[in-house]
Design a protein around this nucleic acid. Structure first.
Lengths: 233, 233
DNA sequence: CGGGAATTAAAAGTACTACTTTTACGTCAC
DNA sequence: GTGACGTAAAAGTAGTACTTTTAATTCCCG
C-alpha cells in the first residue's frame, strides 16, 4: 500500500516514483505513456504530467518514437526530498542512510561553526531548550520524544548557520534521524555521550565559540557513523 | 533572450523558472494557467505540465479556485541543478555563489579524505593528470583551459569519494567554478598557491593519506572563501 | 552483396474542448 | 456577529484529433 495521496496525479507519481527508485524498473526499461495510462486507469494527460515531473528529477527520460526510458541511478537527483523519501522507503534504505549520514558528517560541523557566529539570541535559546529536552527524554524508553528534540536541535543549527543550502538539509536530517530511530531495535536509550555533546554544542554556540561548536558537532557525526557501522555491517 | 530551448515545454519552463527565481514574481504572486497559456501562446496542457514541474521544485504551489502561487525562497529546492542554474543566471548570483562555496568548503574536504581511501588507480591517474593540466595552464591568460582542468579535478575527487551524494555535487561545483571565472575580470592568472595545493591533493590521494588530502582540500576551500570575500565584499 | 537514401510507422508532443471537482468568498438567515 | 448555504472561479481530468520527430525497415544503386 502506498501513501494515501489525494489527486490522481499525486497517486500515479508516488507509485511510479517509488517503483523506479526501488529498482523495480531497471535502467533502460522503456515505458509507454498510454500503456501507463491504461495500467493506472487515468488519462494520458495525467501520465504526461507525471512523466514530466519524473523527468525533472532525472529518473526518466522521454524521447519521441522511443518512450519513457528509466535512467541509471547516477543521473538521479538524489537531493530531491521526494526522491530521498522514496529511496528511504524502498529496498536500499541502509545504503541510503549511510550516504546521507556521511553527508551530514561533512555539513553539520561547518554549519555549527557558522551558527556560533550567526545564531540569533532566540535561536540560542531554542537550541538550549532542545538540548535540555534531549537530556530529559534520554532515559526510560522515551525514544519518540527524544527524536523530536533531536530533529529540532539539528534543524535549528542548520537554520542558524545562515546558509540556505545548509538550512535546506533540515528535512534530510529529519528523515535520517527518523529512519535510524525506527530502524533500530527501539529498546535501547540513546548514547549518553551523544546527549552530552549536544548540550555542549548549544553551550558553545551560545558562547560564540565557533571552533568548539564545530569540533563537538564533528564528534557527534563520528559517533553517528560508528553507530551505523555497528548496526549495518 | 533566454536560452534557445527546443520544445514548447522547455521554453516555457525556462522562461517561467528564470523569472520566478529572479524574483520577478514576489512570493505570494498568483498566476493563472490560462492567463499563462495566453501569454506564451501555448495550450493550457503545456502550461499545466510546466506548473507541475515548478511545483515539484517547490517554486510554486497550485491550488484549486486560487491559482498558481509563487512560494517564498526558503521553500525552494535549492539543490535542484536547474534551480541553481537559473539563480546563477539571475540577479542574486553573488549571494548564490557564496552559499555554494560555503557548501563546497564543507563537503569537498571530507570527499577528498574519502577519495584517498576509495579512489581507483585509474582515478588517481586522472587526478594527477588534471592537476598537471592546471599547472600547465596556470600562467599566461589561459583561464578557460585552466577552468576545464579545475572542474575535472574536483569532479574526480567527488566521484572517487564513493558517496553518491558527493558525486552528485560535481555539476554544482562546475557551475560555481565557471561562474567565478567568468564573473571575475578575466585578466589575472589563478593563485599559484591554489595550484600547488591541487597537485598536493592528487599526491595525497595517490599515497592514500586521507588526513592530508582532507586538510589540503580544506586549505583550497579557505582560499576560495577568502577570494570571494575580496571580490564580493 | 553492402551501404546509403528514401519510406514508414510508432510514440511522444501539442492543441482544443468538454466536463468535474474543489473551495474561497459573498450572501442571507438566525 | 456568526454560522450555514450557494455560487462561481479556477484547477483537475478526460478524450480526441492532429503534428512532429525519429528508429527501423525497405529498397535502390553501386
Amino acid at each position: 500500500m502506498t501513501t494515501p495521496t489525494q489527486g490522481l496525479h499525486s497517486h500515479v507519481l508516488a507509485t511510479l516514483g517509488l517503483a523506479i527508485t526501488a529498482g523495480e524498473y531497471p535502467p533502460g526499461t522503456v515505458l509507454r505513456t498510454d500503456e501507463l495510462a491504461q495500467r493506472f486507469d487515468v488519462s494520458r494527460t495525467v501520465v504526461r504530467e507525471v512523466v514530466r515531473v519524473l523527468e525533472s528529477m532525472h529518473l526518466v527520460e522521454s524521447r519521441r518514437r522511443v518512450g519513457v526510458t528509466v535512467l541509471p541511478t547516477p543521473s538521479w537527483n538524489v537531493y530531491d526530498p521526494q526522491v530521498i523519501r522514496w529511496r528511504l522507503a524502498g529496498a536500499d534504505r541502509p545504503r541510503q542512510l549511510r550516504s546521507l549520514t556521511v553527508l551530514r558528517s561533512a555539513v553539520e560541523p561547518v554549519a555549527a561553526g557558522l551558527a556560533a557566529v550567526n545564531a540569533t539570541p532566540e535561536q540560542c535559546r531554542e537550541l538550549t531548550e532542545q538540548a535540555l529536552g534531549m537530556v530529559a527524554t534520554s532515559r526510560g524508553r522515551r525514544l519518540e520524544e527524544y527524536l523530536v528534540h533531536d530533529i529540532a536541535f539539528h534543524r535549528v543549527v542548520l537554520n542558524a548557520s545562515g546558509n540556505e543550502m545548509f538550512a535546506r538539509l533540515g528535512d534530510v536530517v529529519a528523515e535520517v534521524l527518523t529512519g535510524r530511530t525506527h530502524h533500530h531495535v527501539m529498546f535501547e536509550d540513546p548514547d549518553p555521550a551523544a546527549v552530552t555533546l549536544h548540550v555542549q554544542v548549544a553551550e558553545a554556540v551560545r558562547e560564540r565559540d565557533a571552533a568548539r561548536a564545530e569540533e563537538l558537532t564533528r564528534q557527534i557525526a563520528v559517533g553517528a557513523l560508528q553507530e551505523l557501522d555497528v548496526l549495518a555491517p
